[in-house]
């Protein structure tokens, strides 16, 4: 139930796990005597997003960011754990924005109809005139003109198409947007336009974002909080400023160290070796141990849990100073 304490919270992920069956076809398994195999795409992930703020998920490819995004919008069901929307009125309208705006826009429809579709389906305006006005309003809101509504998606550049998909998402009156690499296919100059638009819309409409990007300077620009994922788990979570200024987990440090600093680039960089291990056969203990310079014997035997640090950051690493288990401090429990 909502209380003043948690009314501020848009969404809670509570020990969410998502497994995929990646076994070979039955016949092959029988012939080759292979066991069933499962892949832990998301493994016991907990975090919460306050209304009107942005939480970013970062990490290397395959670490589970998109799966987490799909869980949040309900495109996947958690194998265990749950996604809760503690606010009054239950589940809010949630929309997803994808990397490739082209793939998500029907090429045979005029932009006007693409944006009007959710308004009609959800009966958000009565009558065609009101719908039309709303579409014009949305086009202007995202920096296009009402005349653009008459065109087809292929007549627009990548950045403009992303504006169209944002307009369509807002047409549902969504309050919560999950954006999966929304600017990764765009040039830096176009990216700046879209990021500015997203920040402006957030301020004007009080939107809540979960933002996914592999570009850490983009994440720095967009986020209030950041969750760093590695092999399906959150290894560090905290306020964006703190994570970037003072990363605690060795993996977060590695990620932040690999970003070139344009003011003072490191032209003699020694690349850090290693790749992400397979999520089908993760290494025992801390999954980061094969690449970690600080690993001890304990890291091969036990798995570190996300613990709240004295400075408020949450870190899953034995070497970092651990204090209070994360779940006991931050999560809003059902009974409150």
């Amino acid at each position: 139930m909502a209380t003043p304490e948690n009314a501020e919270i848009m969404v809670v992920a509570d020990k969410v796990t998502c497994l995929f069956d990646v076994s070979a076809p039955l016949l092959n398994r029988l012939i080759e005597r292979q066991p069933r195999r499962t892949l832990r795409a998301v493994d016991g992930v907990s975090f919460e997003v306050k209304r009107g703020t942005t939480v970013s998920l970062v990490g290397e490819s395959g670490c589970g960011k998109s799966t987490m995004a799909r869980l949040l919008v309900g495109l996947h069901r958690p194998t265990s754990g749950e996604i809760r929307f503690p606010g009054e009125g239950g589940r809010p309208r949630v929309q997803m924005i994808f990397q490739d705006p082209y793939a998500s826009l029907n090429p045979r429809w005029r932009v006007r109809d693409i944006i009007a579709e959710p308004i009609r389906t959800l009966n958000l305006r009565s009558g065609e005139d009101a719908t039309r006005d709303r579409v014009d309003e949305l086009l202007v809101l995202v920096g296009l003109s009402p005349r653009d509504g008459e065109k087809y998606p292929h007549e627009f550049s990548g950045g403009q198409r992303q504006r169209i998909s944002i307009a369509r998402a807002l047409a549902t009156e969504a309050e919560f947007l999950v954006c999966d690499e929304p600017t990764s296919a765009l040039d830096v100059s176009v990216q700046a336009q879209i990021l500015n638009l997203m920040r402006k819309l957030q301020q004007e409409l009080g939107l809540t974002y979960v933002f996914i990007s592999h570009n850490l300077s983009v994440v720095r620009h967009m986020s209030d909080r950041v969750a760093v994922m590695y092999l399906g788990r959150i290894v560090e979570e905290g306020e964006a400023n703190a994570i970037f200024a003072n990363p605690q987990h060795p993996y977060t440090k590695l990620l932040i160290d690999t970003i070139p600093n344009l003011e003072d680039p490191n032209r003699d960089r020694k690349p850090l070796g290693g790749e992400v291990p397979s999520p089908i056969n993760p290494p025992p203990g801390c999954a980061f141990n094969p690449r970690c310079g600080l690993a001890t014997d304990r890291c091969w035997k036990e798995r570190p849990e996300l613990m709240r640090q004295s400075d408020g950051q949450n870190v899953a690493c034995f070497v970092a100073d651990t204090r209070i288990p994360f779940e006991e401090t931050v999560l809003v429990s059902e009974e409150v």
Binding site: N196, K200, R220, H221
Partner: peptide, 23 residues
């Protein structure tokens, strides 16, 4: 110059990025 200014900085979180309008 516009291109360089449109890249988000790692050091400071600006209110808005410098953008080159148009395409």
């Amino acid at each position: 110059q516009g291109l360089m200014n449109s890249i988000p900085s790692l050091k400071i979180r600006a209110e808005a990025l410098n953008q080159i309008d148009g395409s």
